[in-house]
Nucleic acid binder design. Structure first.
Length: 190
DNA sequence: TGCCTGATGTTCT
DNA sequence: GAACATCAGGCAC
């Protein structure tokens, strides 16, 4: 198996965002394995005023500039976590925000954590972090290993993929760096 | 169904 | 001190 650091180290943020669609995250919760499929992503890099890395390397964004294939978790709005997959060569501040996932295995375990069901379970970046118990303790975690692993699937065909501008940001909002799976009920804003 | 707002901590200016 | 890659609940229509 090629390490994620090698695979994603060679990809720009938009390329990585496309590559991540259809891939699966494997999370062990209370001894139970849960598995979700990534259905919506957004790319950010240091040339991008909307990116945390735009202002340069800080204590907060240090992980973004580190090896690819790591998890960058940040806290926002006083109550939410969001998670990103670091991409690009070491020293470049690029990452892909995971905005939505769909449950594959262990949906009940996710529901217990969220007290929600159906598409509302994981159709938003903070929602999926809550469902998968992703917090700051996983910041910088290597996604090749437990307790949170990223498994690559075959790249998704462009015919089932939609490319749009990003949502929830004020700067560079016209950059078409958001990707999601067509006709998928778990996408946050189809 | 859709708009508005409160909750609430971290980061950077 | 303001901005923030958000969410959920309440209210008007």
């Amino acid at each position: 198996m090629t390490p994620l650091s090698v695979t994603f180290g060679a990809l720009s943020a938009p390329d990585a965002a496309r590559r991540l669609l259809g891939c699966e995250l494997v999370r062990t919760l209370d001894g139970t394995e849960t598995r979700v499929r990534i259905v919506e992503t957004e790319a950010y890099d240091e040339s991008d005023a909307a990116s945390h890395s735009y202002a340069g390397r800080t204590q907060r964004t240090d992980v973004m500039f580190g090896p690819a294939g790591r998890l960058y978790v940040y806290f926002t709005y006083g109550m939410h976590y969001c998670c990103n997959v670091v991409t690009g060569p070491i020293g470049t501040g690029a990452a892909v925000l995971i905005r939505a996932v769909e449950p594959v295995i262990g949906e009940e375990a996710l529901q217990r954590r969220r007290a929600k069901s159906g598409h509302d379970l994981t159709n938003g970046p903070a929602k999926l972090c809550q469902a998968l118990d992703v917090t700051k303790t996983l910041n910088g975690h290597d996604l090749d290993h437990s307790p949170l692993r990223l498994e690559l699937n075959e790249p998704v065909d462009v015919t089932v993929m939609v490319r749009t501008t990003r949502v929830g940001i004020s700067k560079e909002a016209n950059r078409p760096w958001r990707f999601y799976m067509k006709d998928n009920g778990y996408v946050s804003r189809p």
